[in-house]
Simulated scan of single mutants.
Amino acid sequence: MAGRPVIEYYFSFISLWSYIGSRSLQALAKQHNAQIIYKPIDLMQLFSVSGGLPVKQRSVQRQAYRLLEMERWRRLRDIPIVQHPKYYPADPSLAHRVLLAAIDEFGHDHGPVHEFTRRSLQTVWADESDIADPATIVAVADASGLEGSRLLERARDEKELAIQEDALTEEVVARNYFGLPMYVYRNEPFWGQDRLEMLDEVIRSGREPIRVD
């Protein structure tokens, strides 16, 4: 009998498209009883080695079309979005480490871990709060059912958590992935939240992963 589906999920709390797909990913995982392996990474570092550009360094044409796509997907996913968040791009590393500390204690399947991930993305892209602010991180963690202050202390004090975030960033680069969100199922990558339907199809059908040499 086939085992439980496992979805590796590379993302960042400041990734717009990770936010847009966040609810749909969790719904897909629930539908298939799949496990999501959360892998927060340094998006700006990924950009620097893969040819990507931060939003404000892109051409005016690409910036304009991005706003159009934001509005389309806001309607399709039925979610709130602030087009120009006040605190974007904030440094999400401390919040990423809080997430990693929570995973270390409770595992990826823990309900509050799912909720903290979703709420942290929402904090940037809908609530327009500062995900780099320790007080904000604690409030989001507490609202998610986690012990925010204690996890924040771990995130600040334990170098292993920073090393882990760096290692995940190195991992995504080593696998030749270049953007977020990146969903990986049985080593087949799906780049972008608009590939969630393709991810759903491969899990549903049970087909063999596509390999391209």
Rank of each mutant, 00 (worst) to 15 (best):
M1W: 07
I7V: 09
Y9P: 00
Y10G: 05
F11L: 07
F11Q: 04
F13D: 03
I14M: 03
S15L: 02
S18R: 04
Y19G: 09
R23F: 06
R23A: 12
L25S: 03
L25P: 06
L28G: 04
K30G: 13
H32W: 00
A34W: 03
I36A: 07
I36E: 09
Y38H: 11
Y38G: 02
K39A: 03
M44N: 11
M44E: 12
Q45V: 12
F47S: 11
S48K: 13
S48G: 11
V49W: 01
S50N: 07
V55R: 13
K56A: 15
R62M: 09
R66G: 05
L67Y: 13
L67Q: 14
L68N: 09
E69N: 06
M70V: 05
D78N: 10
I79G: 02
I81D: 01
V82W: 06
Q83W: 01
H84L: 11
P85K: 15
Y88K: 07
D91T: 01
D91E: 02
S93K: 15
L94P: 08
H96V: 02
A101H: 10
D104Y: 14
D109W: 01
G111K: 14
G111T: 10
T117A: 15
R118M: 03
R118I: 03
R119Y: 10
S120I: 00
W125G: 09
I131N: 09
P134A: 03
A135L: 05
T136Q: 14
T136P: 03
I137P: 06
I137A: 10
V140R: 07
D142G: 10
D142V: 02
D142C: 08
A143R: 10
G145W: 00
L151W: 01
R156T: 07
D157I: 01
D157L: 06
D157P: 02
E160L: 15
E160G: 06
D166L: 12
L168N: 04
L168T: 02
V172C: 08
V173L: 05
A174C: 04
A174L: 03
R175E: 13
R175Y: 01
N176P: 04
G179W: 00
G179V: 00
Y183R: 04
R186P: 03
N187T: 01
G192S: 10
R195G: 00
R195Q: 11
R195I: 08
R195F: 04
E201M: 07
V202I: 15
V202Q: 10
R204I: 02
R207Q: 11
E208V: 11
E208T: 12
I210R: 06
I210M: 09
